[in-house]
Design a protein around this nucleic acid. Structure first.
Lengths: 186, 186
DNA sequence: ACTATTTGAGACATTAATGTCGCAAACAAG
DNA sequence: CTTGTTTGCGACATTAATGTCTCAAATAGT
């Protein structure tokens, strides 16, 4: 057995992040299986995309668990504690941006109510963290927390572009990503 | 005559920025003409997309002309002069992001050598400005200028997301965009 | 009112992608 | 070596989008 369902999923996520409109034939080729085999695992393209979006959502939820986001939101953390959780969230999010950062765009959750709801829940938690960071003085208070959430997404897009074009050394990206988020360009 | 070629182009740019995979039928409907009329103006979908990308490129070049980018790169401007050109460039780019900011993605220039070349030329000029700003002390010098270029793109993505979701008041966006670019979130 | 031009509607052909299926080949297990 | 399972291949049907075409209707100009 050359490729398991898990192998196929992993390759499909990577490939669709790079080429969102790739055909089933192209995805199968990238995964090293035939189109028939891909169809044996996923009856339709919509089923495959749903699976990928679900997994991306789960991975995003795991990111939140890994950094202890729920606990941080419940506890009365001081500024240093919030800063640490925020740093960890940003770092882990960057590390996993290939797996789930871009799969969670509109065209993958497209109209699936449970996926949209789950994504919204996860985003609201991050926004709550940004708001708490603002109250604690970790982040400036004059930017809407929802803007900060979109900013993180925009920075991930900038990271992806930089990696695609080889504009920045990969090992420098975490420092540059965090530094730009906090300090901007001046 | 309900719609001219110019009207169709303007609507098509807006619509495709919002839904890049929209069919010719959908674009025609958005433009208020029939699919047959759209095909009378543009023989193929590829021809339409080429036209839109060309116009986006021209609009981008006009942005550079409007802020006097070429002159600024030739002259020995002081820090205040560079700052002014940079501010203008960012402001005008934001204003026109609907017309050309997102049309200039890979899937529109897709493999057209002249469009790719033109886009690269324009981007190189912006990168030269960022580098000059770093030498002049207007921007911090420890970020690769190509990262700054991708950062601007990422910020425009954040702006688009914020507008789409109504996360930020439209009239606040220029200030937030510039402020986040320069100062980050702290 | 008449003429010329443009457009919308829809039919039809083509293309591309998807979905389904059967069967030989390859692989795995005993 | 045999049996069972899985896969690749390619044919075929279906679907969706595109491209082309004709003609009646609408619009514009005189």
């Amino acid at each position: 057995m050359a490729a398991s369902r898990e192998d196929i999923v992993a390759v499909a996520i990577q490939h669709l992040n790079h080429a969102p409109n790739a055909s089933m034939a192209e995805i199968a080729q990238a995964a090293g299986v035939s189109r028939a085999t891909l169809h044996r695992h996923f009856s339709t393209r919509a089923e495959l995309q749903y699976e990928l979006a679900s997994r991306a959502m789960d991975a995003w939820a795991k990111t939140h668990t890994a950094v202890g986001l729920d606990e941080a939101l419940s506890a009365d953390l001081d500024a240093a504690g919030i800063k640490r959780v925020l740093d960890e969230l940003l770092t882990v999010t960057l590390e996993h941006s290939d797996e789930h950062g871009f799969a969670l765009t509109d065209h993958t959750t497209h109209g699936q109510p449970d996926l949209v709801r789950h994504a919204n829940e996860l985003e609201e938690k991050e926004i709550a963290l940004f708001a708490a960071a603002q109250r604690a003085g970790v982040l400036r208070a004059d930017l809407p927390p929802r803007w900060v959430s979109n900013l993180v997404y925009g920075l991930l897009v900038a990271v992806r572009e930089s990696m695609r074009q080889g504009d920045v050394a990969r090992r420098d990206l975490p420092r540059i990503f965090l530094d730009t988020f906090y300090r901007g360009t001046t």
